[in-house]
Amino acid sequence: MGQSGSDGPRGSALLTSSFAEDPAYAGLIRRFIAGMPERIREIECAVDASDVDRLRVVAHQLKGAAPGYGFETIGAAAGAVEAGIEGHAPASIEHVRDDVRVLIERCRSTLPGQGANAA
């Protein structure tokens, strides 16, 4: 994997796509990152509303799509959230709060000005 940046919490390096050097992906990656604030808001809203079903759908979609854009660690974090929800019946936000935090941090770290690069 060509991703750079750590998987750590806020304040870590800027997370870049493993396909960043591939010109065929340039526009795709730009648009994926541009949609990241909205995705983060969607996750936060689902958490605030304790809407586990909604959170699972968002995590499921990110698990499937993010690696395709070269953000494998986001896909893995989203997969952990989905697995955490599916592993508990009934599931609650509390079961996956730590996994959600990691997922949001990784999403944020794709945004210039949000990670350590901006600190």
Binding site: A24, F32, G35, Q61, G64, A65, A66, G68, Y69
Partner: peptide
Amino acid sequence: DDCVDLHRLLKVRLGA
């Protein structure tokens, strides 16, 4: 697929 990100990716990469 219900994931818009996936559509965008496949449209460009398979469309090519």
